[in-house]
Computed example of a mutant assay.
Amino acid sequence: MKTAVTTNYSNLVFDLGAVLIDWNPRYLYNKIFATAAETDFFLTNICTSDWNEEQDAGRSLQDGTELLITQHPQYEAQIRAFYGRWKEMLGGPIEETVEILRDLKDSKQYKLYALTNWSNETFPLALLNYPFLQWFDGIVVSGREKIRKPDAAFYNLLLNRYELDAAATLFIDDNERNIRGAAACGIDGIHFQSAGQLRRELEEQAILPAVVHS
């Protein structure tokens, strides 16, 4: 059994998508396309992650959609579905991670924040669908601020807005690129891979009480 390492964190910052909220465009496009190969081609070459992140950084959904249709007119219907049927990409809360968030909230030992790459136009739907978002002491949304992870300005905006000490802040994200961005701003991170792995790392750092895992 590992000995817990006591840390001095007072602020815990969570990414949302793929950490607390199950969001995946494949949930939608597996309905639209006949085969997984067609879905993979479309999401790799048409509605790409890079394209979506421009909307996360503040470009309007309409502008992003029309730009892509101009480039790929043969896929107009499928491109319009990306935001027209966006809710079908939501798989629900990741319950095991939400339970971790609840435990941290109940401990009353930490301030909890969310730092998310998310379009400001779709984020209100998340607020309606996921009551646990109200547990945070603050949420910073890239689409609202028009900057996104891993831009240093985005992390510093969080620190400055809520008067946080970077050295007392721990950031949790499923994208290692974003963990490196936080580290460049003096913020320690945990690369999220599963709720079980996250809980174990929080226990090892004495952020959560250790329990015996079978």
Rank of each mutant, 00 (worst) to 15 (best):
A4S: 15
V5M: 15
V5E: 11
V13Y: 09
L16H: 03
L16R: 07
G17K: 03
V19K: 03
L20T: 04
I21Q: 02
I21M: 08
D22T: 09
W23C: 00
R26Y: 13
R26N: 10
L28V: 02
K31H: 10
K31P: 00
I32P: 00
F33H: 04
F33I: 04
T35V: 07
A37N: 13
E38R: 13
E38Q: 15
F41A: 05
T44G: 10
N45D: 06
C47L: 08
C47K: 00
E54I: 09
E54F: 00
A57T: 05
G58S: 09
S60H: 06
D63K: 08
G64C: 04
G64F: 05
E66F: 02
E66T: 10
L68D: 00
Q71L: 07
H72Q: 12
H72P: 01
Y83Q: 05
Y83M: 06
Y83L: 07
G84K: 12
R85L: 12
W86P: 00
W86R: 09
E88I: 04
E88F: 01
M89L: 13
M89F: 02
G91D: 07
G92C: 04
P93C: 14
E96V: 13
L104Y: 07
Y113V: 06
Y113N: 01
L115G: 03
T116F: 08
T116Q: 04
W118C: 02
W118R: 11
S119V: 08
N120L: 03
T122P: 01
L125G: 06
A126Y: 11
N129K: 15
N129C: 03
Y130E: 00
P131R: 15
P131N: 11
F132D: 00
W135P: 01
F136R: 10
F136Q: 11
G138E: 06
I139P: 00
S142V: 14
R148A: 08
D151F: 10
A152E: 13
F154N: 06
L158P: 04
L159M: 05
L159S: 05
L164C: 14
L170Q: 02
D173R: 12
D173L: 11
E176K: 14
E176L: 15
N178E: 07
N178R: 04
R180E: 09
R180T: 10
C185G: 01
G186L: 02
I187W: 12
I190E: 09
H191D: 01
H191R: 11
F192D: 00
G196M: 08
Q197H: 15
L198G: 04
L198C: 06
E201M: 14
E201D: 12
Q205P: 02
A206C: 05
I207R: 03
I207S: 01
P209F: 08
V212E: 10
S214V: 14
